[in-house]
Every structure is written in structure tokens, then in C-alpha cells.
């Protein structure tokens, strides 16, 4: 891995990049309403008519519910239902992506509770039914895996900030830590000694409060199947997929930066921020491009996975090579 320059001088290219972030952020702020701008397809309740005047109704394979949108806000079509629900990174079940669905079948998510605690005025244990009442809007997000592949996925759920508002984070809270269920009997992958289970992830509080940060409870118009992180998971679309932790049982507000499972496993490869950034390579592979699942060839990876207008301002003045 190329060492991170110890010099405190910001390389000129990065300096200009930062200026560009700020410019795009400013331009974006003037034009967009946060939360809606990045997901116009989410607010499209009726399918647009095609040339013949008949409404375009997407044809859906079995097992899939109704989705309003057919593409993301960049016009990129949804990844097939079969791939979204059949090609999963979920090491708690198996490291074989195509075997996760079978390995996770029958995973019981009822009853399920989520403990929200730490630096909050009103710590609370939520029953899943109460969480589901917080909303069920469709959001079509790109998912960029750190391994270099990507999908376009129609999630449903609600902005995490709705849940956090209920517990009232105190002024001391700076970070949010998330934890997956720890149950090696139901999640046999947790018997593997390679990682420090349970899976944990973290966000800065302002990232967690951002409208784009989705608590997903459904995919393709149905409740989340186990392989996608039932019953609830994060979807943080401007960060690499591993940040979007699955099957969450605990959310803790803290004043110290949480250590994620991947940071603990390989600190030189995985940082806390893990923002999608084509200019900062993973030590073992380039992050400049990605293969959309189902495609041949690769597309250029977009800064912040194409959500720069909405989120670049969160990182103003930060050296993203250092805070990778």
C-alpha cells in the first residue's frame, strides 16, 4: 500500500478538488431541496406514460412487490431483483455471495427489538412494529461495494434522523455506533474467528442525521429478506456498501469515534469514513471504476457515488486521502 504522506501539506490536486467540492456543494445548495433532490424517482407515484400513451408498468419477477421508480435520478436502471436479493455480502451467513440467500433463509426476525442508547435524553428500546411506523418511502440508491461492483436498488424505509429525533441526542453526542445481532447459532458465520463479531459500524452524527441516510426496512416493494439485512439495515449511499450495516439491534450515540469491524480487521484498508472516492484507491484494487452487476465493462466511479451535491459539504476542509 502506498503510505499516506506524513507531510501536512495538502497536495495541490487535492486542494483543487476541495475547491471543486465546495463549488458543487454551493451550486447544489442553491438548486436542490435536501432529501428530495437525490431521489426524484422516490417522489414519482405514477409511472410515466411511454410513447404510445400507455403507462409504463415495470414487469416484476415473482417474489417482488411493486416499485414506483424504474431508475435512479441519473437515469440508471434498477439492478435485477434476482441480483439484488441473490448476490449479497453478508459474512454472518457465508462469504459466498450467491449462497447467502439460501444460508439466511428461515432467519427469524420476529420478535426484534432495537436498543437506542448512549448520549441521548430518552434512551429507548424499540419494538420493530414501532420502528416500522416511522415511514415507508421508496428511495432508489446506487450501492457501490468497496470490492468494485455496484447496483441500483429500490429500498424502502425512512430517514434515520426520524428515529434519532425520538431519543433526543445530547449536545455531547458526536458519533453514532451501530451493531448487528450477535447470535452465532442463528448467524453461523459469526463462529469464524477472522473477525471481531458482532459487526459494528459508525457514522458521524451529522452524517447520521443527513436526510439521505436511510433506515431501510424493505427492498423492491417487500419487507427486507434475511439476505439483505432483515428486518432493518442502513443504506448510506455515498459510502462503500460495508458501511450500510445489516440486521441492527443496537444504536449508541457516543462522543468517541466508533471502531467498525472492518477497521479492526484491516486498519490500513478500511477507514472510518469510507466515502466512495474514485481518487483514493483501496490498497489492493483501484476505486476509479466499477462494474454494475449484469454489465460487461466498467463505468467510472463518481465522487461520493454521485451524491456529491448533497453530501460534499459534510467534508469541507477535510483531507479525504487521510480520512479515507
Amino acid at each position: 500500500m502506498p503510505p499516506i504522506p506524513s507531510s501536512e501539506i495538502t497536495p495541490e490536486a487535492l486542494f483543487w478538488n476541495r475547491r471543486r467540492f465546495m463549488q458543487t456543494a454551493l451550486a447544489g445548495a442553491a438548486l436542490t431541496i435536501p432529501g428530495c433532490a437525490a431521489t426524484p424517482s422516490a417522489t414519482n407515484p405514477t409511472p410515466a406514460p411511454d410513447a404510445s400513451g400507455a403507462p409504463v408498468v415495470p414487469t416484476l419477477p415473482a417474489g417482488q412487490g411493486t416499485v414506483a421508480g424504474t431508475s435512479d435520478e441519473l437515469g440508471q436502471p434498477l439492478t435485477d431483483f434476482a441480483a439484488v436479493t441473490g448476490y449479497n455480502n453478508y459474512y454472518e451467513f457465508t462469504t459466498d455471495k450467491q449462497a447467502v440467500a439460501a444460508a439466511a433463509a428461515g432467519f427469524v426476525t420476529n420478535p426484534w427489538t432495537v436498543q437506542v442508547d448512549g448520549l441521548v435524553a430518552k434512551p429507548r428500546q424499540f419494538a420493530l412494529e414501532d420502528i416500522l411506523k416511522l415511514g415507508n418511502e421508496e428511495r432508489i440508491y446506487r450501492l457501490r461495494c468497496v470490492e468494485g461492483w455496484s447496483m441500483v436498488i429500490p429500498w424502502s424505509g425512512f430517514s434515520l434522523n426520524k428515529l434519532l429525533a425520538l431519543v433526543e441526542p445530547t449536545s455531547a453526542a458526536k458519533y453514532v455506533r451501530f451493531e448487528t445481532l450477535n447470535d452465532p447459532e442463528r448467524m453461523p458465520g459469526q463462529k469464524e474467528p477472522w473477525y471481531t463479531w458482532p459487526y459494528a459500524e459508525g457514522l458521524r452524527l451529522d452524517e447520521a442525521m443527513h436526510d439521505l441516510t436511510l433506515m431501510a426496512t424493505g427492498v423492491y416493494g417487500n419487507p427486507l429478506p434475511p439476505q439483505n439485512g432483515a428486518p432493518l439495515r442502513l443504506a448510506v449511499p455515498w459510502k462503500y456498501g460495508f458501511k450500510s450495516i445489516k440486521s441492527i439491534v443496537r444504536i449508541t450515540l457516543t462522543d468517541t469515534q466508533p471502531t467498525s469491524l472492518w477497521m479492526a480487521a484491516a486498519p490500513d484498508e478500511y477507514g472510518f469514513y469510507a466515502n466512495v472516492n474514485p481518487r483514493v484507491d483501496h490498497p489492493r484494487w483501484s476505486q476509479a471504476d466499477e462494474r454494475r452487476i449484469g454489465d460487461t465493462g466498467r463505468r467510472q466511479t463518481l465522487m461520493f457515488n454521485g451524491y456529491a451535491d448533497a453530501v460534499a459539504s459534510l467534508y469541507t476542509g477535510m483531507d479525504l486521502r487521510k480520512f479515507y
Binding site: R284, W285, S286, A288, R298
Partner: peptide
């Protein structure tokens, strides 16, 4: 052919930045 669709710019960028 299939992963990089003969995109030589992407291919050389990819190969020469990765030890494996």
C-alpha cells in the same frame, strides 16, 4: 474482454496500481 471491455486506459490504470 468482459471485466474491462478492452478499455486500455482503465486496464493500465488498474494493473499498475495494484501489486496483486
Amino acid at each position: 474482454m468482459l471485466d474491462y471491455a478492452w478499455n486500455w486506459q482503465q486496464i493500465s490504470q488498474n494493473i499498475f496500481s495494484k501489486r496483486h
